[in-house]
Design a protein around this nucleic acid. Structure first.
Lengths: 187, 187
DNA sequence: TTGTTTTTTTGCCATTTGGCAATTGACACC
DNA sequence: GGTGTCAATTGCCAAATGGCAAAAAAACAA
């Protein structure tokens, strides 16, 4: 809870009353490894702040093969923001990679905050565009690097994360096969 | 001008007065091929709506080699939104790939719209997150496809664009060398 | 613990892509 | 018409990566 508030304060000012208001709209939730926080085809009805655990945003091809777009872990928000805002179905899955705990804003709770706290939706869209820009830059950068460079960059940009996610998921995030990643890892 | 309004209307409602207000804050601008709309190290002080031409968002490595993150063309906004909002220096260049014309919002003009038009900044952040999500999805998808698939996808997703941008820029967008793209093209 | 299932590693070979250099082509300028 | 400049094509070979299958290791369940 503490962390959530500190995270928000990085992006804008909040009064004590506003903080109390936010805290009152958030509910703890646990989710098991392998379960989905949101699923393709459904409308995302909540926004989560991860207090413990790792999630991945992913999709599946016709053959059922899963591809990881990116990972999100402690002290970050996880949500399909476009689905949530416009109430349209998601295109992707948000899957718990480990057993996890979250603080969750419901759709109605979030809207109450938008109506009560001046600048709340601006603050949130600031977070959103900041995060998305980084995600986009990351995958755009990977495109022009070879597999080993991508892996090494991942290791020092997300220290420890490589040990918390299955190799196969990491491989699909890096855009290589599991075998290739295993070989690169040997070095 | 017509197109700008129609584009905005796709993302939210606007009254006649609001439309007039928007139109009064926008100024036409032309920019020559090769010139920059915004540059790394500077603070982006404007948002452009492209009425004619093609731009690319790009960066350079130490060796001076340029890499294209993505292209933007007619009837879309071009801006470094995080730099513009927070008044921090951009990390990237926005370069005119062809001679182009724009409609430009200045920082002050844009702020006046935010203060005058209820929901203006929500409407704009809706556009931003929608566009960024798509850009991110595009480069994330490319990561798991081979070069030829990426090229073919580009051709039918952006019809005609391949003929408007130099091969070398397209190659760097696709994450391959100019030679490789040239070979793929032969087929 | 034991057996079962899933994930990871490894070997082998085919294919893709990169790197480099030479050639060709387009275009502007003299 | 010649000449310089820059972009695009092509050939050659090396390096990176994929595909597939078998073996090994790890995770999980009974």
């Amino acid at each position: 809870m503490e962390e959530l508030i500190n995270y928000l304060l990085q992006f804008g000012r909040l009064s004590q009353e506003q903080i109390a208001m936010i805290q009152s709209k958030v509910k703890p939730k646990t989710i098991k490894k392998g379960a989905y926080f949101s699923q393709a085809g459904q409308v995302a009805d909540k926004i989560g702040y991860i207090t413990d655990g790792v999630f991945r945003v992913c999709y599946y091809d016709k053959a059922g093969e899963g591809y990881t777009r990116y990972f999100v872990y402690e002290n970050r928000f996880i949500a399909d923001i476009n689905s949530f805002r416009d109430e349209i179905p998601t295109a992707e899955y948000i899957e718990a990679v480990t057993d996890s705990t979250l603080l969750v804003f419901s759709k109605t709770g979030f809207e109450e905050l938008s109506n009560t706290i001046t600048g709340w939706s601006d603050l949130f869209s600031k977070i959103t565009s900041y995060v998305m820009e980084n995600k986009m830059r990351a995958s755009s950068n990977m495109l022009v690097q070879d597999a080993q460079t991508r892996y090494l960059h991942f290791l020092d940009h997300y220290p420890g994360l490589a040990n918390r996610v299955p190799l196969s998921m990491l491989a699909s995030y890096l855009g290589i096969t599991a075998s290739s990643l295993s070989r690169i890892r040997k070095k």
